[in-house]
Amino acid sequence: MTDSDRPRRCVIADDVRASRETVATWMQECGFQCTLAKNGLQAWQAICHQPPDLLITDLEMPGLCGLELLERIRQSDYEPISSVPVLVMTSLRDGQTLTIVQQMGGDALLQKPLCKQSTLSVVLDLVAGDHASRRVVHPLDDSVVTGSGVISPTLRRLLKTVAKSERR
């Protein structure tokens, strides 16, 4: 079986079961084999066991948040892991989220609630594209907070979590 014959694989990390399962259903309709993880640590273990073609991760999760997971991936010495495209999804409405995800090496950012058509459009672009040029995409709706402003307490907590893990 050649690489082009094998099914595409994705890891979906979200602590909300309904979110994981909904995204998995959409991905399976596009021919992906999905591994579901209820937190970042489970996702990291799945990625280390067999690097996927795509990671879809929530930001806010217990144990290992999405930013920590993204950081581990980008800092990996193993190229099949460090080059995995990462789609971040979040319900966090913070003007700094997009910038931070981009700075940490995320490939795309989608705001929850997710739309099937927008999600699959971004996913298919990510798995088909050249991942050397990272980009961040977000839905074009009025509910997305943009601009530079004060970082929300939730995003500040996630960033502190990442900083603490770097010191260990």
Rank of each mutant, 00 (worst) to 15 (best):
A37H: 05
Q75T: 11
S152M: 02
S82F: 08
P85I: 02
T25D: 09
A128P: 11
S118V: 10
R72Q: 15
D77I: 15
V162E: 02
E60H: 15
K160A: 07
S152H: 01
R17V: 15
I56H: 02
D5I: 14
D107G: 02
V144I: 04
L124T: 15
I56M: 03
A46K: 01
E79D: 08
V122G: 04
V122A: 08
T90K: 07
E68H: 05
R93I: 10
E60K: 15
I151H: 03
D142G: 12
C10V: 15
A37E: 02
L64S: 01
T90S: 14
E60Q: 15
C30K: 09
D3F: 13
V144T: 03
V145M: 06
L70A: 08
G105S: 07
S165P: 00
I100M: 09
K38R: 10
V150T: 13
C115G: 10
R20D: 00
D3N: 07
M1S: 10
P80I: 07
I73D: 01
V150P: 15
R8F: 11
A43Y: 05
Q33Y: 11
L59F: 10
R156S: 13
M104K: 12
I151Q: 06
C48G: 09
Q103I: 04
L120Q: 05
S19V: 15
Q96F: 07
L114G: 12
V136W: 04
I151P: 00
L114N: 09
N39K: 13
Q28T: 06
Q50F: 14
Q102K: 14
A24F: 14
